[in-house]
Nucleic acid binder design. Sequence first.
DNA 1: TATAATAATGACTAATTGGTCAGTTGTCAA
DNA 2: TTGACAACTGACCAATTAGTCATTATTATA
Lengths: 278, 278
Amino acid sequence: MVKKQLIMEKSLELFAESGFEATSIQQITERCGISKGAFYLHFKSKDELIYSLIDKFMSEFIADIERSVSEDKPKEELLYNFLYTTFGEFQQQANFAKVFLKEQVLSFNKELFERFHMYTTIINKIIFSVVQRQFKDVNLNMQLDLLFTINGLSKGYGELFLIDNYNVDLDKLCKAIVEKVTIIAEHATIQFITPDYFASTNQHMNITKEQIVDLMIEVMGEVEQDSIVHESLVLLRNHLIEPTLSDVLIEGLLKNIRSSSQCKWIAYLYQIQLEQKK
Amino acid sequence: MVKKQLIMEKSLELFAESGFEATSIQQITERCGISKGAFYLHFKSKDELIYSLIDKFMSEFIADIERSVSEDKPKEELLYNFLYTTFGEFQQQANFAKVFLKEQVLSFNKELFERFHMYTTIINKIIFSVVQRQFKDVNLNMQLDLLFTINGLSKGYGELFLIDNYNVDLDKLCKAIVEKVTIIAEHATIQFITPDYFASTNQHMNITKEQIVDLMIEVMGEVEQDSIVHESLVLLRNHLIEPTLSDVLIEGLLKNIRSSSQCKWIAYLYQIQLEQKK
DNA sequence: TATAATAATGACTAATTGGTCAGTTGTCAA
DNA sequence: TTGACAACTGACCAATTAGTCATTATTATA
């Protein structure tokens, strides 16, 4: 399994240097010092490699920021914590950050696009929960504007990290952004974003039950037999084909599989599917 | 010449759909209903096509925003004008905007990257001149932070334009951003950006005199003989090989060639070259 | 040491790429 | 009608791509 790690590391380097599409499997195997065949022992395709990379890094990243803004943290430090963790990760995983930034803006591969969409949706939800707690006196629509403001400022200042060797004082950067957001929360009056925006972002997911079942069967082959994750997948699959279980049971099963990074994606699609059914 | 137009339009469509690298010349010629050979009558290579597209759209775009924030405009409307023109163009040239956003973030092709770098530098200079005029009481370092704030908010809210069919009230959007920037200009105290950042952004240009001369000779072949642009190019080229003219004369000649969209890029490189010499 | 199982190889395929160029077509003026 | 010139064509080329698979090397077990 150590070779799989090697492939992921080296390919990430190459993707950061020249982009995903422009990097060939030849190049990856050469840099790893392995043969082409060995690559396909670990990944079914080039696409699967990038999905693995994204899932691995993003689920770690999300776990980190979730921890940094958890319920027990002081309310007035939430935004600072979020930013500090985000930029810290950004700095540490510079290669992944580059790939993410590049491919995320507009990913033309549909599956890739939807994966990115999921992760940004999750992150947006986290930011919004931060806003709701730290700026709870602000009204809903302005909270949505704060979400956009935070996203925007992060992107604007985030560019500094793309300059090699430019040393950023993380603490000061985060304080500068927190100050700006706080000032806007206190003084701004024009609310631009309305909740229907969020309704519109989730609509362009059009995935069939069959596609999800296929995905589940695929992952079931990779997951340890008789584990909680595996059994949960079986039950969820059966429920999708022939609904038998109550909402609360499904909720628990989804929590079960979300503990595996390979399944986060499935859990997300599954939930959307259920919501559409209603 | 009408066929060249056709190629540029259709290829832009395709680039917006699938990205520059993923679009083949086959696809372009098919959509245009022309042969492969015909393509190469108008463009020396695939790269030259994208350079043309970028130069065409960006020089028009920059001319537009320069007009919208010119000296004669009321100081308190400058930022609004800039945003309104920017987003308006964004909406109108949705295809180009998509390509620009996608390729701009991190362009792995060196020449492409430097071209984008030039245009974003020019735009940053325009934004900064807006800030200096509209927020002239703010101190220099905070003005730099305002530049980052404007860029960030534009990026954050700009995402709304990437959702198809999402109708944006341009006027309200611009007012919402102007209000936020104004509030920050009045209340913010933490200054993060320092002028040395801008010094560092211009350093990673490493272009030789010979490369610039080659570029100039190339463009001289495409430009009308005996025109002001052509003669200016000749004089500038001679000066680069064997300096004879005074700074002020060079300044004027550069202004001459900047009137041609094909030469903006050359003028930019030329100026950097001269600055490095000193 | 012999056997079975697993890991790894790299020549191979079929498809696609950007780019070329000998040849065809269309359009003028003479 | 002729001939000159430009516009245009598409078969062709060498290089590269993702992915396959018969073969070989390595390791573990008996």
